[in-house]
Design a protein around this nucleic acid. Structure first.
Length: 276
DNA sequence: ATTATATCCTGATCGC
DNA sequence: TGCGATCAGGATATAA
């Protein structure tokens, strides 16, 4: 499930592949995917960057293509081979599942970018005008964040803090896996009302948010079921998860059984003892 | 205004 | 062996 660390990993791998590349044409295999007539869109890539969980590919015209991987999206790169027409993706043969779920292919002068998405939640759109920089939402990696800023973001929200952390209109990048991991790290109960957090708790929450996300980025993200980087490689942060998907297993800190609860139709994992 | 819920989608898994 | 039910969750539309 691509969250901020997975998207950041994709962006870092794509950047050297795409910057300077010329887009010649595109083909869309899933009508549901296309939100603009992109087939005729051409140009030279000037930058690849992350905006929240979106992957933005900027072109010299000033327009950008924005990808969102949602649940199962993958961006795979096929280097154009000058020697033969082999279908290599980062050294690995494009497998049957990728062929079956291929949603669009962007034909660049130096290779092909393929958007593969099993569940078709992913999106691709053309953005003609850059979004004016505003105060919200805050990016925990790119923007300043401390306990006071967090308090302003939370405002008077009484949402349970786990549910609040998933909101992309306040703080971008956190999804279901990292929300549980961050709260465990901060030793805060997922059921606490967001606006009930005291300053020391907000301070711990900020510190844990940065620590967990940065460590996950270092590990190239979490590969649970579908996530791979453009070369087809997996992340390794799944080996470092403390509570996510560990129901009834012992807490790595106190050996209490990890509990699972459902909040806003999503699983939350937590230690009932460590997170009072 | 905020907050809660239903919906989208497919593959894996489970119980019978 | 199959077959229906359930689960996974990011974001949005709709409801309350």
């Amino acid at each position: 499930m691509p969250e901020l660390p997975e998207v950041e990993t994709v962006v870092r791998r794509l950047r050297p592949l795409l910057v300077g590349a010329k887009l010649k044409s595109s083909k869309y295999h899933d009508a549901k995917l296309r939100t603009a007539p992109l087939e005729k869109f051409v140009g030279t890539v000037t930058a690849v960057r992350r905006s929240g969980k979106n992957i933005l590919v900027d072109f010299n015209s000033g327009s950008s293509i924005s990808f969102h991987l949602r649940m199962t999206g993958n961006l795979l790169w096929e280097k154009r081979s000058s020697k033969n027409g082999s279908t290599q993706v980062g050294g690995a043969i494009l497998n049957h599942s990728d062929e079956k779920h291929l949603r669009c292919r962007l034909n660049f002068d130096r290779g092909e970018l393929r958007f593969v998405d099993i569940r078709r939640f992913g999106t691709v759109e053309l953005i003609r005008e850059p979004k004016a920089p505003g105060a919200l939402p805050i990016d925990p990696i790119e923007d300043p964040l401390d306990a006071d800023i967090l308090a302003k973001l939370i405002g008077s929200s009484r949402q349970q803090i786990k549910v609040w952390l998933l909101r992309q209109d306040r703080l971008v990048g956190i999804g279901n896996i990292y929300a549980s991991e961050i709260l465990f790290s901060a030793k805060i109960s997922p059921f606490r009302a967001a606006n009930s957090l005291e300053a020391p708790e907000r301070k711990r929450l900020v510190k844990s948010t940065l620590a967990v996300l940065q460590k996950a980025i270092q590990r190239c993200g979490t590969t649970f079921s579908d996530f791979h980087d453009p070369d087809g490689a997996s992340g390794s942060f799944q080996n470092f998860l403390k509570v996510y998907d560990r129901e009834d297993k012992s807490c790595r800190s106190c050996r209490t059984s990890v509990a699972r609860a459902v909040q806003a139709q999503r699983s939350t994992y937590y230690c009932p003892k460590c997170q009072d």
